[in-house]
């Protein structure tokens, strides 16, 4: 642990990522404090779509709500959508890919075929089915995003497993009588760590983009939720008057992704012994 800390401390971009993620977490935790005094849901049509000013640092959205407050208030919602959405995709995706790649033959083939089917299945249709069964809401959105993102993790995992499983060290372990579970856990999973990490940090951005897309179709979180995707969608028509409505949550997403990206790079570089410099 101490070794890891020492090494991580020397990893500049890892530290930057860590700080960003820390700041975002702080913002999430203190969102109620940061937004105090300004109600992110208070409609005031008299100041609809104002450009940034002293009173409204980022301007207002179409309903005359303070944009800065909304972006901050949206952080917990959007972050949980992104993180849960990615986890909901990552966990089953990784297992499906792992099993399908390791146990070739019928089971593997079937698993990958259902993954192909899932890719082809339209995302909106999936979201609509979920919503028609469960109603609109944040958790439904997470589920729709998560389910439809499973294939990317499954596929990446599948290919990694296939490359690794024929390598000498895995073959050797198998020859030495190591059990499947041990081989999967000890030799194959760590090798898939890097690409999965990249996909996961990018998945945060895609999740929120999907949320915006679903909002556009009336399948997003119910208003007046300040979820970032919903804010972005609300700015569609304001592209010239008040582009901040799109840029601000867009940058918030970018910061989040960047933070997780850099942190992820740092973690991998320090955790993976082969990458020593």
């Amino acid at each position: 642990m101490a070794v890891f800390l020492r090494r991580f401390r020397r990893h500049t971009s890892g530290i930057v990522g860590f700080v960003i993620v820390l700041l975002i977490c702080l913002a999430v935790l203190s969102a109620p404090v940061l937004t105090r005094g300004v109600d992110p849901l208070a409609v005031n049509l008299a100041v609809s779509a104002q450009r940034p000013s002293l009173e409204y640092p980022l301007g207002t959205d179409e309903m005359g709500r303070d944009l800065l407050t909304r972006v901050i208030a949206g952080a917990p919602i959007s972050l949980s959508i992104a993180v849960v959405g990615v986890l909901l995709a990552l966990i089953p995706g990784v297992w499906i890919g792992l099993l399908a790649g390791y146990y070739e033959g019928r089971l593997g083939a079937w698993l990958m075929r259902s993954i192909d089917a899932l890719v082809a299945f339209p995302r909106i249709l999936l979201a609509m089915v979920i919503i028609s069964i469960m109603g609109t809401g944040i958790s439904q959105l997470m589920l729709a995003i998560g389910l439809s993102s499973i294939p990317i993790f499954a596929r990446v995992m599948f290919v990694t497993v296939q490359t690794v499983r024929h390598r000498d060290f895995v073959q050797a372990a198998a020859a030495l009588g190591a059990r499947d579970r041990w081989i999967l856990w000890r030799h194959i999973l760590p090798n898939a760590f890097a690409p999965i990490l990249v996909q996961a940090s990018l998945g945060i951005a895609t999740s929120l983009q999907i949320a915006a897309g679903l909002s556009f179709l009336g399948l997003g979180p119910p208003p007046p939720s300040p979820e970032w995707g919903a804010i972005i969608d609300g700015g569609r028509t304001l592209i010239r008057q008040q582009p901040m409505v799109i840029i601000a949550p867009g940058l918030a997403i970018a910061m989040t992704v960047l933070g997780f990206n850099l942190l992820g790079d740092g973690l991998r570089d320090t955790l993976d012994p082969r990458l020593k410099r």
């Binding site: 951005a205 983009q209 915006a212 592209i239 799109i246 940058l251 960047l258």
Partner: peptide
């Protein structure tokens, strides 16, 4: 790896995926 170029490209790609497509 670890240079300004690396970080710059990282930021560029992050913006690429984070900024709304229709914008």
């Amino acid at each position: 790896r670890g240079t300004v170029l690396d970080t710059g490209l990282s930021i560029l790609s992050t913006l690429g995926i984070s900024l709304p497509v229709f914008w």
